[in-house]
Computed example of a mutant assay.
Amino acid sequence: MKTSTIAKSIAISTALAAALSASVLAQSGPVAGPGMGMGMGPGAGQMGPGARGMRGMRFDQTNTPGWTLMSAEERTANQTKMRAVKTYDECKVVQSEQHAVMETRAKEKNITLNAPRQNGCDVMKARGFIK
Rank of each mutant, 00 (worst) to 15 (best):
I12R: 11
A19Q: 04
R75L: 07
A7W: 01
Q118H: 14
A22M: 10
L113M: 09
T76A: 15
Q118C: 06
K92I: 02
E97C: 04
G39W: 07
Y88P: 01
K8H: 00
R58N: 09
L16A: 06
A126G: 09
G50Q: 02
T3C: 02
C91M: 05
P34A: 06
G48W: 00
Q61I: 07
T62I: 07
V24H: 03
M36N: 06
G37Q: 05
K131C: 08
S28L: 03
A32Q: 15
L25S: 08
F59L: 14
K2D: 01
A106P: 13
R83I: 04
G37S: 05
N78S: 14
G37P: 05
G37K: 03
K86Q: 15
I12F: 01
R55V: 05
G50R: 03
I12V: 13
W67P: 01
R117E: 06
W67S: 01
T104R: 09
A84M: 06
V85W: 10
E90H: 07
E103M: 12
L69A: 13
A11E: 12
A26C: 03
E73Q: 15
K92N: 08
G35N: 10
T3R: 14
T87L: 10
A17T: 11
S13R: 04
V93R: 12
E90V: 04
K81R: 12
P116I: 14
A84P: 03
G33Y: 10
E97P: 03
Q118I: 02
R117C: 04
M40I: 03
F59C: 08
I111F: 14
G56F: 07
E74V: 10
P49Y: 11
A18P: 00
E108C: 07
K109D: 02
M54K: 04
I6E: 05
T62D: 07
N110D: 13
Q27I: 15
G120V: 14
P42H: 05
R83G: 15
A32G: 04
C91F: 11
V93T: 10
K81E: 15
R52F: 08
C121S: 04
A26S: 13
L16C: 03
Q46T: 10
A72L: 06
V31M: 12
C91T: 00
V85D: 07
Q98L: 12
G29Q: 12
R127W: 13
V101D: 12
S13D: 10
K81V: 06
S96T: 13
P49I: 03
P65N: 09
A77W: 03
E103I: 10
I6A: 13
T87A: 07
S4C: 01
M82P: 11
M54C: 10
N119T: 02
A84C: 09
A26L: 06
A115V: 11
V101N: 10
I6P: 01
R55N: 11
E73R: 07
P49N: 06
V94P: 00
